[in-house]
Design a protein around this nucleic acid. Structure first.
Lengths: 225, 225
DNA sequence: AATTTTTTTATGTATTTCTTAAGAAAATAT
DNA sequence: ATATTTTCTTAAGAAATACATAAAAAAATT
């Protein structure tokens, strides 16, 4: 995650950089606006923290300029704390507005909240999904239930992932075939899926009549959540 | 835009409602969490403003529960203003955290900022229809009446959806066959549909003589609304 | 070759859908 | 207004369909 920090007060910029680095973010730090804009144009930035009072350009103008081209979240970090300042800031395209003096950890929480939302929508789909006591990690192909490892076969894992990815929505058997086998193997009978579902429920100690996780939607398909 | 407001302090909830209405939003106001959750489940909400200290459930728990199923922005509005409170709030899935006492216009600006971001990323194809106390969601194949789950068979669901989709218009029996079975099974007698209608009315506690929902248009078909 | 995974097949059960038929309500005809 | 026809409502049972489960066969991995 690449984050741009712009503040003419060196100490503030440095402090923010320190905290962001601690969280594992890649920080691009600037004490003026022009340089920062160049960076934003060239790098693919994920978030910006802007001061309003900059030596060269106004932070709000900068905010507007960014919005003409980019959609990543912008947090205004500034000493201007009157209500009207906040309102104009937020109206100009900023996503959050934090006033100085500020609590670094709160700022970090706000950064994370903004990035989380940004990620969930930019279809940089998360590779981790949790629901109740279930958590699935697609990267290392792991599935935990009540913090205990569930050993799933590839197909079982894929089905569970598909269901969780579409939390709440019903997935038909046809959709499962499309997603898991492609259109090629369209001959397969639906009973195959049913068996996989049964195995999943078995391993998850879930029942068909009173399901905690995978519930059947009669005549339609299966859903979770 | 539908916004849920939950606060056990009546004055605050009313104040927020007033401002939101001024901005043209449709407000669902609650003084406790349970009722609010029911509303969130049945309506397709676009944003929620939550207090933390609620009489029945904790606002943070509520936040988590919402996040299990929904992605709309959540703003915490609360008197708990220590840094750790803000951080946990934002970590739990909230998108913004405003402390009391608050400036109403600033809150409005934050609401707008959140909705702006939400809208730019979500391509809302609403698969949800509401009519009176009835709400049908095609995605999760759920139908709620007075916030209570109606368990419908696939055909019943399809018929009800078809009627709601064409709210106000009469649907003939032939049209129903076309939509539900395709032209193939055109031999079926219309009595089949009539029976489904009866079952629907039964489950919806609706009567034929004085219908609240599905009304018969003599010699033509059925309609809703 | 042995093991694991996936699919098929078969069976019992539950649910849904359709048919049938009788009675009520509405429209039309007498 | 009364009788007749048409259409709708209601009920109950038969037929069809979908699901859960189990066990065995086929395929893929190891």
């Amino acid at each position: 995650m690449k984050i741009v920090v712009v503040d003419d007060e060196k100490e503030i910029a440095d402090l923010v950089e320190l905290y962001l680095n601690n969280e594992g973010y890649q920080v691009f730090k600037f004490y003026n606006g022009i340089e920062a804009m160049k960076c934003i144009e060239s790098q693919s930035i994920d978030l910006a923290i802007l001061d309003i009072m900059l030596p060269d350009i106004n932070g709000l103008t900068m905010c507007q300029k960014i919005r003409e081209k980019f959609q990543f979240p912008i947090i205004m970090l500034t000493a201007k704390e009157t209500e009207i300042d906040k309102i104009t800031g937020l109206t100009m395209g900023a996503d959050d507005y934090v006033t100085k003096p500020f609590r670094p950890l709160e700022l970090m929480a706000r950064v994370k909240a903004q990035l989380r939302r940004y990620k969930t929508f930019t279809h940089q789909k998360s590779n981790m999904i949790t629901f109740k006591a279930l958590s699935i990690d697609k990267d290392n192909h792991q599935c935990l239930l009540n913090n205990q490892l569930l050993s799933l076969t590839p197909t079982e894992f894929s089905i569970l992932w598909l269901l969780c990815e579409n939390k709440g929505k019903v997935i038909t058997v046809d959709q499962m075939f499309q997603e898991l086998w492609g259109e090629k193997y369209y001959t397969n009978s639906s009973s195959s899926i049913m068996v996989h579902i049964r195995h999943l429920r078995e391993k998850m100690h879930d029942s068909a009549e009173n399901p905690e996780y995978i519930q059947t939607v009669w005549g339609v398909g299966y859903k979770i959540g």
